[in-house]
Amino acid sequence: MAELTDKKTSTISLRRKPRWGESIIQGLLFLSGFLSIFITIGIVYELGKEALLFFQMPEVDLLSTITSTEWKPHVNKFGIWPLLTSTLLTSTIAMSIAIPLGMSVAIYLSEYASPKVRNTLKPVLEVLAGIPTIVYGYFALTFMTPLLRQIFGNDTVQIYNTASAGLVMGILILPLITSMTEDSLSAVPRSLREAAYGMGATKLEVAVQIVVPAALSGIAAAIIVGISRAIGETMIVAVAAGAGPNFTLNPFIGAETITGHIVRISGGDLSYDSIDYNSIFALGLFLFLVTLTLNIISQAIVRRFREVYE
């Protein structure tokens, strides 16, 4: 015993001790990080490969794909515009519901609601987010569409239409936007709110002019994630927006979105390496690129406009 203490005080060893547990955990963490990157690369590779096959087919040329307003695979017309416009239409309608409503609910929850109200309302929103999207699809078809037809008339509003799908998609995205926005509002430090209240600011001034700008990066992220979700949303549009590409900006008539089209075609009897089969990979790749671009834009916005508070 005495020897041990002696050793410790006289020559202190600074040598590295092996810590196996730490090394193993670190290795596992690295592996899972690597795996997610690997899977992403795999998906992009597969999409790219099949999409390339599509563009190499003699019936297809890139120029008419990005200029033509007709998507009619059976006569070899592959213009992206009808599918793209209806995707943009449903997404725009969805976001015009989800952004203002989501922001308002988030501001209410973070700045106005008592802890009790907040603790009731947040779980409710999370339940809303957990409902399978197919249910939302039938909600659009059996509730929203009849409602729209009652308001605007059966002659104006078709059974399948992008308005109904877009509105319900807005409800679907609402919890996502709300919870991401609320998180970033709550992350604004208390000292900043106190600074504003201490200067005699009202609740609304503090919320809108101090807290929201300080949380802007998180809010922008929420909005972009919402848009990505809207563009990629599939079941609602497959059920309620209508089958068949339709180049129109009229929200009351049926029009197939990119995702809706992919679902319908892949649900059919497809032969491997047919032009239809390859076309949906090209569409998939396109969706991927759109979402990627949105994410890059959002990061740029965040860097440019955020008010760093520490």
């Binding site: 000292s191 900043l192 106190e194 201490g198 200067m199 005699g200 700008p213 008010e307």
Partner: peptide
């Protein structure tokens, strides 16, 4: 209270300028 804080200002322990 907003009026009270307008007439009675405050400086805090930790400097807390607005991120402006």
């Amino acid at each position: 209270p907003v009026e009270v804080r307008y007439r009675i200002g405050m400086v805090f322990q930790k400097p807390n300028p607005f991120p402006k």
